[in-house]
């Protein structure tokens, strides 16, 4: 009897050790919630949680996509502008051509996937360093977002778009559930499919993966297309947040997703982490951003905090992965 107890105690400790990243982020998330609810009485209201989830809806879907590229040891800095561009395509389809419903979702995803193809091509076919390639395409996508309507915002008038934030399921907006569905899908892909496993192998060691018969180039190529398609789906969610397609969507928060994902425990070096890490990291970042707004921190200070979080996240990643390579 006693030995069994001891064993269980050891198992809990082992579990915590193995899931150090997850448990520490969860802990930080709880602490953050307590802090904000003490400072602002509005924090712990249903209305506020809805707005947090609506914010996370768009960034979370992109983060899921970014998880794939990061797992292969690459990165994607172009997500926010690609989302803005895809959003403009949705806006143009609806506002100029009167297209509605699920077609808008598809247009967003296709626009995003095309952007992803561009990244996939420059990184995996031309062999340009991901950091530079996606830094460049970041400017390209942002420019295209402005050029597409000559810098004009477009209002979007569509029932499905409105439903994302107005319709609820179990008290939470539909958008939140779509994001959760994306995460469950990605969790499944990473755990149960050959492609998911290939992402880890390639990120762990490209050379070993190649010599073990894994098509490294194809694996990385697809990861970028997935990341792009996620931006397209996220664009739909972002448009739904204000029923408008904004050329400058996400300006100034280009690095938010990266920060969230790395804080959550996806290693910058590749091959380590799961979508659970991503979800927790994005939630933590969403709560921090929301709270800063609630307590009335000016955007300048918010930027300062976000910058520190990004640097801190990379530092945290270094500490976590020390000696694991």
């Amino acid at each position: 009897m006693e030995t069994k107890k001891k064993l269980e105690g050891k198992n809990v400790l082992d579990w915590l050790k193995k899931h150090l990243a997850e448990s520490s982020v969860l802990f930080a998330l709880i602490i953050m919630c307590i802090v904000w609810s003490i400072i602002s009485p509005y924090f712990l209201t249903v209305g506020n949680f809805r707005s947090i989830f609506i914010y996370i809806g768009a960034t979370g879907i992109m983060a899921a996509g970014l998880t794939c590229t990061l797992l292969t040891g690459s990165m994607d800095l172009s997500q926010m502008p690609l989302m803005a561009f895809s959003g403009m395509m949705i806006g143009i389809a609806n506002n100029w051509y009167g297209i509605h419903g699920i077609w808008l979702v598809l247009i967003g995803i296709i626009a995003g996937a095309c952007g992803g193809l561009l990244n996939a091509f420059t990184v995996t076919i031309l062999g340009i360093v991901p950091f530079i390639a996606t830094l460049g395409s970041q400017l390209v996508f942002r420019a295209l977002a402005f050029i597409s309507t000559d810098g004009v915002y477009l209002s979007v008038n569509d029932d499905l778009v409105r439903a994302m934030t107005k319709k609820n399921f179990l008290g939470m907006p539909i958008m939140f559930w779509i994001m959760m569905a994306v995460f469950i899908l990605f969790w499944f892909i990473l755990k149960y499919t050959q492609y998911g496993r290939n992402l880890y192998s390639v990120g762990g060691s490209q050379q070993t993966a190649y010599l073990s018969g894994i098509n490294v180039r194809k694996t990385r190529f697809i990861a970028y297309v997935i990341s792009g398609a996620c931006c397209g789906l996220a664009a739909f969610m972002f448009v739904a947040q204000g029923n408008t397609a904004l050329n400058n969507a996400g300006t100034g928060s280009e690095m938010d997703i990266m920060s969230g994902v790395i804080v959550g425990g996806i290693s910058l070096g590749g091959g380590m982490g799961s979508v659970i890490n991503t979800l927790l990291g994005i939630a933590l970042l969403g709560v921090i951003t929301n709270g800063m707004g609630l307590v009335g921190l000016t955007p300048y200070y918010q930027m300062l905090v976000k910058g520190l979080i990004l640097v801190g996240a990379v530092l945290l990643d270094m500490v976590r992965t020390k000696g694991k390579r």
């Binding site: 880890y200 762990g204 060691s205 070993t208 993966a209 010599l211 290693s267 694991k324 390579r325």
Partner: peptide, 15 residues
Amino acid sequence: EGVITPLSVKWNITT
């Protein structure tokens, strides 16, 4: 070139 160091023994064996 031989092992994928951050991954588990199990995953390496079935690469």
